[in-house]
Design a protein around this nucleic acid. Sequence first.
DNA 1: TCATTAACACGGG
DNA 2: CCCGTGTTAATGA
Length: 219
Amino acid sequence: MQSATDPCYQLLKSKFEFLFEEELLQEFCTMGQIKTFDPGQTIMDIGMAITHMPLVISGCIKIFTEDEEGNELLLYYLENGDTCAVTLNCCTTRSKSSIIAITEDATQLLFIDIGKMEEWMIKYKSWRSFVLESYNSRLNEMVGALDNIVFNSLEERLIKYLRDKAWVTKNSTLSITHDVIASELHASRVGISRLMKKLEKDGIIKQSRKTVEFLEFSK
DNA sequence: TCATTAACACGGG
DNA sequence: CCCGTGTTAATGA
């Protein structure tokens, strides 16, 4: 039995007590490792062997792939209580990582050994549902992202990009340049500047040098 | 039509 | 002077 005053146990309990049963929380404590990351740190890279799966305690991680020319394709963000579906897949098939994971904010992760993760799939119902639910939500999210790229105009994609960005950072004021936005959306900087100007005129955003304020959280 | 590349002007730090 | 931004012209799908 874990001590009720154990800080690790306290932390995990406060984050996950509504998700997992008591016994599993205790296993997290004894079998898992908590690690802290600064913003912009690479947690996982393409080709890396996967030995542990991450569970986000706090902060935010960006998950993406890269092509031969180094173009990024954003897959999804991991936030509080999320885990990485691609990692889960790599775990079960014992393959190398096909994705890159970089922290957006200061982030705390709980790492769980893949051996344990498989054992718990059988032992704990809450763990099994958590993993399946995680697969499900990521798949839905990625289908949505694909739909967005294929069917939406650049303007709609830009609005969605800003909304998502404001959402994950929990901050409607983003510090970002048109250049960065352009490369993340695989568009030209000229086009972004033109659209940003339009969005500003339409009252969707306010902007100044290096910062954009997204004005939609009145909805 | 809509987006891209190239080129340039403006202005704040 | 550099960088981010705003704009124009030419070109392509």
